[in-house]
Design a protein around this nucleic acid. Structure first.
Lengths: 131, 131, 131, 131
DNA sequence: GTGGTCTAGACCACT
DNA sequence: GTGGTCTAGACCACC
């Protein structure tokens, strides 16, 4: 079994696929260079439209996360240069701000958010060491 | 000037408004009990359609963030108890996971994410330079 | 203290007043013939606009629930003839249908609804005997 | 023909649609998992604006009564667990109180209300003559 | 003055 | 094909 997506979710299926693949790579479940299932395979497995998966793969390739080798298949990119570090910092900051805003409206103390983050990092994919 | 939204963004304008209001409340720029600009006021200010703002306000009311007083205006809710704390934790964890995945693909070390979060919390509305 | 209404409720304040007065009468807290506070009194008591109370009283009078005696005050109507019994039955049926629909979507068994109604009738205003 | 609403009623059309759909589901006329007519279909059928129906559908989705599958249509939710049972009981009690108050002012004996309820339950979708 | 509802018609994203 | 968003402009109810 490969991916599971919720067709009823408000986030589009192709984006769920993208997020799922990215998460697997980040957690080292999908090692760089390893091969992803073909579009048709996945489509049958997940019983969804091949176009949907194609769209996800296209976007992932555009982001430089995977690479399509014609006739061979699609693979996780070996190594990528980070985008402009300035942009990264700004994006990250924005995401974290969203987290804090959400936490505030849910009545979760900031200290708990921080603790939760530390915890997540510690147990990231079992024993995976971050780059 | 009050809010600014990006009409070309992929996230709908009404959701940008929601996020913006929530952020202002979380940062205490908008104190509980204080009045928000009327729909029509905001509409002319931001030069967008009143319906769009109305939609944002309605959603915010549904979430219990603001309250509508008939014929008077809309106000920031005084106090609310958080929803089920269990659900909060799960949601938060999910959001933080997204942050880490994003960080990994941007080549940002987890330690830096953690440091960034601490930094954000420290300056949260202290010397907040609102964007 | 007399009436309490919630200005933030979605049901208009004047309708809340109407419902409240009707309920007191139905529960015999307000006996037929007894006098209601003047509009001005109530307005001061509840710190709301007199016009709002006036509107409620007007509607109550229109429905034949209360009577305004010029120079004397407003009183609970002594006795009223029921409206067309056919209309009553239809209205009641509609209301009860709404109750059952609501119960179904809340996952409450119909038997519980029935039991709850019996319970309510039994304890109606303490010891008040229905007509 | 599907739904009929009264444009002149004081309760908004979109709420009438909501109530109607809920009633159909409660009466099992609309089975869980079955598909509702598309917004545009209904709009032409009822000769009202698609936006009005969209609003009703969105609210129903928010309440968890129906589910939207992107690009496929909207369906009756398969199964939902009830919300907090405590809240349900309070809401129900309030509704039933309203019924009794209404009955009293219409001169209907409480015993008759009770009998009517039993009758409704008995024939709930057995030989349901839908209106 | 306030927000709430409805219409007409346009454009877009997803499957 | 589906629903989601946005605009323009109208009317109404409430306070």
């Amino acid at each position: 079994m490969w991916l599971t997506v919720d067709p009823r979710s408000s986030t589009p299926m192709y984006q769920q696929i993208i997020a799922d693949v990215k998460e697997r790579i980040a957690k080292d479940i999908l090692a760089p260079g390893s091969r992803l299932p073909s579009i048709r395979e996945l489509a049958v497995d997940m019983t969804i439209n091949p176009n949907t998966i194609a769209k996800a793969y296209q976007e992932l390739e555009r982001e430089g996360v995977i690479e399509v080798v014609r006739g061979k298949g699609t693979f996780v990119t070996e190594k990528r240069e980070g985008p402009s570090p300035a942009a990264s910092a700004a994006d990250l900051r924005e995401l974290l701000t969203k987290v804090l805003v959400e936490a505030h409206h849910k009545g979760v103390a900031f200290a708990d958010v921080s603790r939760e983050l530390e915890d997540l990092i510690l147990h990231w994919s079992g024993s995976a060491t971050d780059e």
